[in-house]
Design a protein around this nucleic acid. Structure first.
Length: 897
RNA sequence: GCGGCGGUAGCUCAGGGGGAGAGCACCACCUUGACACGGUGGGGGUCGUAGGUUCGAUUCCUAUCCGCCGCACCA
């Protein structure tokens, strides 16, 4: 017994007008209040975990963060709906140099003070205040994006427990001999006043000069010319090197040269490092200011003379040039050497290292720093990627990763900053001993003296970031809770620019301290660029604030645009037109949902109508829904976000809105009441399921609509993900409806070509092959609504009127009849064109099928398919030719009259 | 120098051995009771170039040109 319910077409929709800003805020607040983001620890469920790459507390999020977070949220939401205990850990990074620099700039601007004026303790307090302020800004931005991360587990790299992890790792590595302190040449940023690691230096090609300087021999036997780009470092020269095989210089090896200005005697040495072809073939050796020279110096047991101060000025070793800035000094040195007639110059392009943070030219500088010994750590890190335990997506990034590890050098981890994790090393003023300790040290471990002080420096920010996947889960203190349950994580999503900085380091640290790689898959996405393909940068002023985009459109639209804007690993351009297109989809979903809500009765649940009550259109849309769910799920699980977005988009817009809703109107607005309930049920069911598929892309609008629909459960966030069910597969219904749709489309095309407006009724005669008669008769109500016939005849042997328009589909002839309106000449021309095209296809296929090697070698399925195509074309051609023949005789008769 | 990515419709991008797709833009018609951020139709591409493999190449291979990006060297 089916209760008769009449659709109330004038019923007020529970959905009002679409107001993204109000709605998105309200829904996010509600989600938070209900704690839907919390991983619940349900042990009957499998876990799915992502740690969010912690944004720097320096400032605001950009579109790259928005993309990264959307990808993660998409995955987390899908997995949560699939029944996983999904955990997404948010947090922030203290970003040592960057944050300190920002606070220093603010301090200088607002109070005219330097950090030294304030003192370390007071300055660090300022940075904490800054951190609190920006952390809140960043949190609110992440929320506006709709991120369903577990805020109850938010972490900061300088939280006490994470700081403890840092000390634990440092001390352990030290004890294993993998962390050491030493006097080595490092990259120094004179502006930031700190050491940098190799990867914090960015090389840039610059126009410079290669200077040839003549150094005289001390014995008066002439001179030797060296070539250098950095004459100002000559005060640190301790030798001149030539290649051992270089005959020009072989007699000079072992002799002494006199260094101009400072009159120091330096030897000529032979070292294979020298390239005979370059410059003069003689290199001045300055171990304190060039990494290669440093090595040469070590090999030859030469002293290293540091001639520069921390801020990039020459020191007392430079004699009268002391206290000059390095570039000022270069000018003066060059001028004086020129005046002495012992310098010449040639133009020279070379690459110069710059500080990644501030752009200052870095100085290779000899100083005492802490290092991580990398060779042994790199081996397992390479191995887990090589053996597939950890996969990069796209996998080409694995090569970049491995290449880096193959050529890795020790990691300089000390930074001469105040903001960060203070190095847990303590030095004794009495015995000079070093104590490295997890806890504060009062007494020297070596001499028992009490005059100990902690190392002034802090650790590289990336040292703590490297521990993020496990330090956020309670390591080292709590290894039974989250760590045991949620580690290792499943996916990491990040940009290719931090594969070395972060991804590689997390992998080797996790392997060292948890014996597991930190994630199964690493998704690498490209950069978001501006509409001209340029990087966003402050200097270009082309930045786009994602929050502005959300304010103008919606987070749902921004998310959809970002995540469908490019293939993973590929850069994308940001076009507001594309956000508009995404917004159009959001609006379309909204409006279609309003239609559904207006047309279903209150007690219609989103359950399916019984099979026997389903109309052809119902069967069609259900089949499409389930193939869409299958395809989209596969695509999402393969991280093909753009493809998945497109799959769902096409289903929703083309199949559901353009076709199904229009077909549903036939029953909803029709007289046949028995069909109304199944139609309503189908509408509600399909919309519900489609919203679930869309939810990871556009969480807000889907939640809002889902709440308005009849539903089970509290939130769409935890509604089960649509599964592809074989029971709903209905290939036959799908093909039959598709056939009907082709007929409808053909009628519309014909009407359009002949300028017969849809409002004008015409007689329509369909002459299908006998096996299609039943389907077409069933579909008469659809065709009545969508083709607007005066009279509609479905009959393979229908008698045809003289005045008619014909179009031939593979299995059916379509005839429009309209007395007095047919232009026989124009019709001949139109069908002539149709014939031409059909002949072209027939010809093409005949050639193909006439090719013996095609028949012999192509897969039989392909051959079969081509044969069927040929058959179809030939049948159609035959009918078109017949109609043309008829038209010819009619027009002959007419002209004869 | 080594390696990678990209070159497909006017624009932005998918796709990928069996006569090429989407969005936007464009043209025509349509204010039909969810939606003009809409509907119905339509035009538009020798898939960078040249070879090769193949029955068949836009897709695979090689070379080449153009654009972009890593890495290394650079006295």
């Amino acid at each position: 017994m089916v209760e008769q319910i009449v659709a109330k077409s004038n019923q007020q929709s529970p959905l009002g007008s679409y107001d993204a800003q109000e709605m998105e805020k309200r829904i996010y607040d509600w989600w938070m209040e209900k704690q839907f983001f919390r991983a619940n620890g349900d042990t009957t469920k499998q876990t799915f975990t992502i740690v969010m790459p912690p944004p720097n507390v320096t400032g605001v999020l950009h579109l790259g963060h928005a993309l990264d977070n959307t990808i993660q949220d998409l995955l987390i939401r899908m997995r949560r709906m699939q029944g996983y205990d999904a955990l997404w850990i948010p947090g922030m990074d203290h970003a040592g140099i960057a944050t300190q620099t920002r606070v220093e700039a603010q301090l200088s601007k607002e109070e005219g003070l330097s950090r030294h004026d304030l003192g370390r303790e007071a300055f660090v307090e300022r940075v904490w205040a800054w951190k609190e302020q920006y952390a809140e800004v960043i949190r609110s931005q992440i929320r506006r994006l709709g991120a369903s991360c577990d805020w109850s587990r938010e972490r900061f790299t300088m939280d006490p427990s994470l700081s403890k992890a840092v000390r634990e790792v440092f001390v352990t590595l030290y004890e294993k001999g993998l962390i050491y302190r030493g006097n080595y040449i490092i990259n120094w940023c004179p502006r930031c006043g700190t050491a940098l690691s190799d990867i914090e230096v960015e090389y840039e090609e610059m126009n410079g000069a290669l200077y040839h300087i003549t150094y005289p021999f001390t014995d008066g036997s002439g001179s030797l010319q060296v070539a250098t780009t950095r004459p100002e470092t000559m005060f640190g020269d301790v030798a001149v090197a030539v290649h051992p095989d270089d005959e020009r210089y072989s007699a000079m090896v072992g002799k002494s040269l006199r260094l101009p200005f400072v009159d120091r005697e330096i030897p000529v040495i032979a070292d294979a490092y020298v390239d005979q072809e370059f410059g003069t073939g003689a290199v001045k050796i300055t171990p304190a200011h060039d990494p290669n020279d440093f090595e040469v110096g070590q090999r030859h047991h030469l002293n290293a003379i540091n001639v520069m101060t921390k801020d990039g000025k020459l020191n007392e070793y430079a004699g009268k040039f002391a206290s000059l800035d390095r570039y000022e000094a270069r000018k003066k040195v060059v001028a004086e050497l020129e005046a002495l007639g012992i310098l010449t110059r040639e133009e020279h392009v070379h690459s110069v290292g710059h500080c990644e943070r501030c752009g200052t030219v870095v100085e290779p500088w000899l100083s005492t720093q802490w290092f991580v010994k990398m060779d042994s750590l790199a081996i397992p890190a390479k191995e887990v990627v090589a053996n597939g335990q950890t996969q990069f997506v796209p996998d080409r990034f694995a090569k970049i990763y491995s290449h880096w590890l193959d050529h890795i050098r020790d990691w300089c981890i000390s930074r001469q900053l105040w903001w960060g994790h203070r190095i847990p090393a303590f030095y004794c003023a009495d015995c000079g001993g070093t104590t490295v300790s997890r806890e504060p040290v009062e007494i020297c471990s070596q001499c028992g003296g009490s005059r100990v002080s902690q190392d002034e420096d802090v650790l590289d920010t990336w040292f703590s970031s490297a521990l993020w996947p496990f330090s956020t889960m309670g390591w080292p203190d709590d290894q039974e809770g989250d760590l045991a349950r949620y580690f290792p994580t499943q996916v990491l999503s990040t940009g290719f620019d931090i594969i070395y900085f972060w991804v590689a380091r997390m992998i080797f640290m996790s392997l060292s301290f948890t014996d597991q790689p930190p994630f199964e898959q690493v998704l690498i996405h490209g950069l978001v660029r501006d509409d001209q393909g340029r990087k966003f940068s402050k200097s270009l002023g082309n930045g786009i604030d994602p929050m502005d985009v959300i304010s103008k459109y919606s987070a749902d639209a921004l998310r959809f645009m970002l995540v469908t804007g490019a293939t993973l690993g590929q850069d994308m351009r940001f076009y507001s037109e594309r956000v508009e297109a995404a917004q159009a989809l959001v609006t379309k979903i909204w409006n279609a949902s309003r239609f559904v809500l207006m047309n279903i009765d209150a007690n219609i649940m989103g359950s399916l109508p019984p099979v026997e009550q389903r109309s052809l259109a119902d069967r069609y849309i259900l089949h499409r829904l389930h193939t869409t769910a299958k395809q989209a799920t596969e695509e999402l699980q393969a991280y093909q976000f753009a493809e998945a977005g497109k799959t769902i988009y096409e289903f929703f817009w083309n199949d559901f809105c353009d076709w199904y809703i229009e077909l549903a109107k036939v029953t909803l607005y029709g007289e046949e009441t028995a069909q109304k309930i199944p139609t309503q049920q189908t509408l509600a069911y399909v919309l519900d399921q489609a919203l679930r598929l869309l939810h990871p892309f556009m969480p807000f609008v889907t939640e809002e609509i889902w709440q308005a629909l009849p539903h089970d459960g509290q939130t769409i966030m935890r509604a089960p993900w649509p599964e592809f069910s074989e029971a709903l597969k209905d290939e036959k219904g799908f093909l039959e409806m598709t056939f009907v749709m082709d007929v409808i489309r053909a009628v519309r095309v014909l009407r359009h070509e002949k300028n017969i407006a849809l409002g004008k009724k015409v007689d329509i005669i369909l002459r299908p092959k006998s096996e299609h008669v039943a389907v077409l008769r069933t579909a008469i109500p659809y065709m009545v609504r969508l083709c607007n016939p005066n009279r509609l005849v479905v009959d393979a042997t229908a008698k045809l009127p003289e005045e008619r328009l014909t179009t031939v589909l593979p299995e059916v002839e379509i005839i429009l009849s309209l007395a007095g309106l047919v232009d026989f000449g124009a019709e001949q021309k139109r069908l002539g064109e149709e014939r031409r095209q059909l002949e072209f296809e027939v010809n093409r296929l005949q050639i193909k099928l006439g090719n013996d090697s095609f028949i012999a070698k192509a897969p039989t399925a392909i051959v079969q398919k081509e044969r069927e195509k040929l058959e179809g074309y030939m049948e159609r051609l035959e009918k078109v030719v017949a109609e043309l023949t008829r038209l010819a005789s009619v027009s002959n008769r007419q002209s004869a009259e």
